[in-house]
Amino acid sequence: MRQLLILSLSVLALAACEREDREYRANPVTSETEEKIALSPLSAGPSGPTEQRSGLGQQYEENAYHIAQGKRLYIWFNCNGCHAHGGGDSGPPLLDDRWIYGGQIENIVQTIREGRPNGMPSFRGKVPDDQIWQIAAYVRSMGRNVPKPAAPGRNDDMHPGPAEQRRPPGEVMDGGQIPPAAQMPQ
């Protein structure tokens, strides 16, 4: 009887095993999400800014898979061409806490989708909606605005020194050679 109890209790413990949900397959029929966060009230007077969230932002921000995909897409779609890796270049920096157009994930989605007047291109129709959310989640992670366990690590080539596992360039040997790209960063 005791054994049975212990056994069933330990089986019960398995229920606590939970893996993060990875949603690979975006819903093919939903159209654009319509989040609205106005930066300032439209009318004069004491009413607060309108906010209309669907909770989707949180889903993306707390999901390591989405953020990691966003990191990949950030390079693929050449955001780093204008914003560098968050430090800013011709576009404003993204890893500080100063935002021209708002730093909520909904604002960032809006920025990417619609573009902004002083040189931020619009990606509407060029990047599917779910990927825009993924990129926005990654942008949020740059300033550590996402839960720590969900944030992706920094790339090897972004570390100030060579990564630990990176050996100094070895001798050229049979069957292998080291291209300049692999040499240690100065």
């Binding site: 093919p28 599917p128 990927q131």
Partner: peptide, 15 residues
Amino acid sequence: DPHGVKPGVNMPTIQ
């Protein structure tokens, strides 16, 4: 439906 064939593939489902 690329993810029906190769779940998790780096090609998005496009409407």
